Amino acid sequence: MIGNHRTELDWAYSWMIYTRFGMLEHFKLVLKDSLRHVPIWGYVCQACGYLFVKRNWQEDQLLLAKHCKHLKQSGAPIQLLLFPEGADLEGSGKAKSDAYAKANNLPIYEHLLHPRTSGFTYLVSHLNDHLDCVVDMTVAYPKNIVYSFKEIFLGNFPEEIHFHLKRHPMSTMPDDAKELSAWLKSDWEHKETRLAQFYRSGSFELPTDAQSQAKQIHKAIDIGALNLVVHHRLFYVALFWVLFTLATSFAILTTWYVRWYVVLMSLANLLIEHHLGGLLHLELQLAETATA
C-alpha cells in the first residue's frame, strides 16, 4: 500500500483499514531509521519487523534486499505500507519538494510532496511474484487536522478521516524500474487532482461503476454491525494497552526481580543495537544463517 503523508499520524490511522479487513497482524511499515532509536516504541517496531531506511540509497538498497528475501522466505502474507514522499506535509518537507519541482520543471503540489521513487520501484520489482496488488491510499482531513501524537495525548482528535483506496493488480503494473518510477509520478499527479477535488466538495468523487459496487456492498453487508465489531476490537486493543502499561509500571515499582529483568533486557537491547545494528538486523542475520 502506498499513501500520501499528510501528518505524522497517517500510518496509525491506516490501522483502521487493516483492522476492518482483518490484516493488521501482517502489517509492516517503512520508516526512517532515526525512529528506530525512540525508546520502547522503536524497539517494538523492530520486533514487529518494520522496515527502517536511512535515505542513503547505497545502504538502503542492501538492507531492502535482505528484507525482501526474508519476507519472501517467511511465507507470510506481505502487507507493506510505504509513504513515498518520505516526509509529512508539515515542516521543511514542503519547501524542499517545491524547490525540487522548480529545479526539474515539475508542477508544484498544494496537497502533496513529490514522491521519492527508488524505494517503491525496488520493493515492487523485487517482491513482484509475492504481491497480489498495489493499493493506492489517499487520506484527507475535511475538518480539523491533528499533526502529532502530542496533540492526541492532549485530547485533540480529528473529527473525520477520509480514505480513498484504489487497487492496482500486479498484472497491470509495469515490470521495468523506470516505468514503475513514471507510474508513481503519474499516480501522484492524479492524487493531487483527487485531493483538490476533495477539499472543494468535501468528499472523494467515485466513478459510476465504483458507486454501483459500493451500493451492492452496502446491501450485502450490515455496515452497522461491521462498524460495531471494528469499534469493539479497537476498544479492547486500547483497553489492553492501558491495563498492560499500568500493570507493568506497578510491577517495576514494587517488584525487585521485574526491575532487574527490565534492566537486563535494556542492556541486552543496547548491546544488540551497538554491535548488530538493532533487533531487526539480528533477525535478518539469523534468518540468513538459517537458510544458508
Rank of each mutant, 00 (worst) to 15 (best):
E8T: 13
Y18K: 06
Y18A: 15
F27S: 13
L29N: 06
L29A: 10
R36Y: 00
W41Y: 13
Y50T: 06
F52H: 01
V53R: 07
L62T: 08
H67R: 01
H67G: 00
C68L: 11
H70L: 04
L71E: 07
G75C: 10
P77A: 01
P77I: 03
Q79C: 14
P84N: 08
E85L: 02
A87W: 05
D88H: 10
L89N: 08
E90N: 07
S92L: 08
P107F: 03
L112Y: 02
P115I: 00
G119T: 03
F120L: 02
L123I: 05
L123T: 04
D129A: 15
D129C: 05
D132P: 01
M137S: 13
A140K: 01
P142Y: 11
S148H: 12
K150M: 06
E151C: 02
L154A: 14
F157P: 01
E159W: 06
I161K: 04
H162F: 09
F163C: 03
H164G: 03
K166N: 11
S171W: 04
T172R: 12
T172P: 05
P174L: 08
K178A: 15
A182T: 14
E189H: 11
S201T: 13
S203F: 13
F204D: 04
P207W: 00
P207Q: 05
D209W: 07
A210R: 04
Q211N: 11
K215N: 09
Q216W: 02
H218C: 07
I221V: 15
G224S: 13
L226H: 14
N227H: 12
H231N: 12
L234K: 06
V237M: 10
F240R: 13
F240S: 10
V242C: 14
L243N: 13
F244K: 13
L246I: 15
W256I: 13
L270F: 09
L271K: 07
H275W: 14
L276C: 10
G277T: 03
L279Y: 14
L280A: 12
H281T: 02
Q285M: 14
L286N: 05
A292K: 15
A292N: 11
